[in-house]
Design a protein around this nucleic acid. Structure first.
Lengths: 201, 201
DNA sequence: ACCTGAACACCGTTCAAGT
DNA sequence: ACCTGAACACCGTTCAAGT
């Protein structure tokens, strides 16, 4: 496991993750065999297992990659001047950047998350962190008089995250295109949820 | 497959579904082997395959059972006098009746749904139907002057369903207990989303 | 028809052997 | 260290054989 050539190690592992992600999208996590992953990565089983502990370890690597992307999407919200507008923009950014393959892969990962306690802890921690960040942003919005002060920041953040997760699941079921249409209603919902009564006119 | 004794057939199949559900909750759909399911059902592999076409066919049976339960939960909404109050009550009912095992099982099923096109069609149809029913209920609420008329009924219904699905996923991640706490915020969100401005004050 | 359990093709992972 | 591929234990499903 310890490598003498850390660069090669990292490079090979990235190749394996990429090949595996493609296989998982095409066939699903369990239907894709390690033989398939090995073939896609152009390595023998032994070589793959030299860089990766197990099939689950591959999922762990992909989760870590996805978390970085999610963090990037949420970052602008934390120090936005106008939280609601920034949140609308984030929804648009998600809808614009997400592909059907991404949706399938992350659903596949969510499912596997349930089975591996350490993966579940990883996912729960990521969600908690996101909720905490969003909560801070909501507090700021309240301080600015933009968000209704009767809302509990962290719980409201969780509600918003639940909404996003649910929309993504619907996009997975019905296809990524329908999300664009659904977004109008979702944005309206977010505005009405958060805005102070005077502003909501 | 054709049975000479339909009653026995149905009884045995129900036994298999129940035993399988328990195994899937304990170990996950893919980690639970048919050998495990056979042992839990007290039958030999050949016998199980006499009543069930495949491992996936078991999932199909469980989905059909779950859809009946969901329909029961939504029914009161369609002809409720006060939609928002009825929706709050439905959220409470879901939170009260759901167990950690239910959550795990339905997440397990959702994941498998992605892999089998016919299962996905089944799930999509069920969601569409629920959205349609909710949409009608929202239209009625609008006609009564209880729900803001600027909301598009069916899209709003989809948004509400997305919110519920997201909350259930969070409950799966963080445990069923946290949902009770989260519910306060979720209900508040629903009220603010739907209520006409005069009422929301 | 209903049931059994051995048998088949295939899976994730390991490990002796090479370089 | 890095890589190979045969080998191991196990999987979902089938099927000849019993009743």
């Amino acid at each position: 496991m310890r490598s003498r050539d850390p660069e090669l190690n990292q490079q090979r592992k990235a190749m394996i993750l990429k090949a595996a992600a493609a296989c998982f999208v095409k066939q699903g996590f369990h239907a894709a065999s390690m033989k398939d992953v090995c073939a896609a990565a152009g390595m023998s089983p032994g070589t793959v297992y030299h860089y990766v502990r197990s099939k689950t370890d591959i999922i762990r690597g992909i989760i870590e990659q996805e978390q970085a992307i999610t963090a990037d999407l949420l970052r602008p919200l934390v120090d936005a001047e106008d939280f609601v507008a920034a949140f609308h923009a984030a929804l648009d950014a998600i809808a614009a950047s997400i592909t059907q393959d991404d949706l399938i892969l992350s659903a596949e990962i969510s499912a596997e998350t349930l089975r591996q306690p350490d993966l579940q802890a990883l996912a729960a921690a990521a969600t908690s962190e996101a909720a905490h960040g969003l909560g801070l942003a909501i507090e700021r919005g309240q301080a600015c008089g933009q968000i209704d002060v009767s809302l509990v920041p962290e719980q409201t953040a969780n509600t918003l995250i639940a909404l996003i997760d649910g929309l993504l699941w619907q996009a997975t079921l019905f296809g990524a295109e329908q999300m664009v249409q659904q977004l109008t209603s979702a944005k309206q919902a977010v505005s009405r949820m958060l805005d102070v009564p005077e502003r909501s006119r």
